[in-house]
């Protein structure tokens, strides 16, 4: 009597594999766009690499070395080949390999995402379910008002408010940088405000989507059947209404990934959180194109990966999608 769906492992694996294959052209597109972006920027990497005092011959030399004298498609081939070897070039600012710098930021970003979603998704779902079940009640109106208000608060504003009050006025929690890994007290304390910020703005859309989805399922005939069987209201709501509502909710959460990534970039910047987002903003502001390109590739990869996870979850939740 588990409330969770029975996973049919083999059809599931096949599905994951199919979806992975489908991400290949998307990934290719992302790389192509990243590559073309580098072509339209006004900076010549050879000149940057050579330094301000270099002679024209030296620049020419470097250009040949980097393959910049080749036709575009060859350059793209070289670029892909380097990428496959984990070579995304070096930072224009400090000559550190882009991959090296990126490698250090992915962990903190994942940490922040996890810490934000870990609390906000369950709360959003719970609020939405409560609002739907007691539709029209004071509770429902409260949740609706909260999600309208919450949905219109910009990430940076919430972040700044938290910094001002919790961090600065009351001095309860630190508000810059990462104190350490998640399993340390300092790690927890330092991630609290960024996670409250990023999760906080995510509660409203999740609650709203859940409310709509649960309301819809509560009116379904199979819910009436569940009640006619003599099930308790909690079983009806959890196992029949919410369980079915999770299908659209997961899909809709998936559609919010872009919003979440954008929010992460802002949150990291506001809290000086050493993640991919902050790196991206820094790179763009300092015209560090190879670095910017690297962060865009990583963020896109993240986007594709989360979509894949959502897709798999979706199939896990809905037996009708499993075929057979």
């Amino acid at each position: 009597m588990t409330p969770w769906p029975e996973l049919r492992t083999n059809t599931m694996l096949r599905h994951v594999f199919q979806r992975l294959l489908m991400t290949v052209p998307v990934m290719f597109g992302v790389l192509l766009i990243g590559f073309l972006l580098m072509q339209v920027v006004p900076t010549d990497p050879a000149i940057v690499r050579a330094g301000p005092t270099a002679t024209a011959e030296l620049v020419q030399e470097i250009r040949r070395e980097l393959g910049l004298d080749q036709p575009l498609y060859v350059q793209f081939g070289i670029y892909l080949w380097r990428l496959l070897q984990g070579d995304l070039g070096v930072s224009i600012i400090n000559n550190v390999a882009v991959t090296q710098e990126l490698g250090g930021t992915i962990g903190p970003t994942l940490e922040l995402m996890f810490a934000s979603l870990f609390w906000s998704i369950p709360i959003g779902i719970a609020l939405g379910t409560i609002a739907a079940y007691w539709r029209g009640s004071v509770l429902d109106r409260f949740v609706t008002a909260l999600s309208v208000a919450g949905g219109s608060v910009p990430v940076f504003f919430l972040g700044l408010m938290l910094i001002w009050f919790v961090g600065f006025q009351w001095q309860w929690l630190p508000f810059t940088g990462r104190g350490g890994p998640l399993w340390t007290v300092e790690g927890w304390r330092s991630i609290a405000l960024p996670a409250l910020t990023l999760g906080g703005v995510f509660i409203a859309p999740v609650a709203r989507m859940t409310r709509t989805a649960v309301l819809e399922v509560l009116g379904a005939e199979h819910v009436r059947t569940a009640r006619a069987k003599g099930l308790s209201e909690s079983a009806v709501v959890l196992h029949h209404a919410l369980r079915n509502a999770l299908i659209p909710v997961v899909t809709l959460i998936g559609l919010q990934i872009g919003f979440l990534l954008g929010g992460a970039v802002v949150t990291e910047t506001v809290f000086s959180w050493p993640g991919v987002g902050r790196l991206a903003v820094g790179a763009i502001l300092s015209s560090d194109f190879p670095m910017a390109q690297g962060t865009i590739i990583v963020l896109s990869l993240g986007f594709i990966l989360v979509n894949l996870v959502v897709d798999v979850l979706y199939v896990a939740l809905d037996p009708r999608m499993r075929g057979g």
Binding site: M1, P5, E6, H222, R224, A226, K229, G230, N244, L317
Partner: peptide, 27 residues
């Protein structure tokens, strides 16, 4: 006990037949 007009929509699409049956019995 009660049965309804639309067998298509009267059963929960996300739970197996067995689960929906045993759930009723379990109560």
């Amino acid at each position: 006990a009660m049965i309804f007009q639309e067998p298509m929509t009267s059963l929960n699409p996300v739970h197996s037949v067995g689960r929906q049956l045993t759930e009723a019995m379990h109560v």
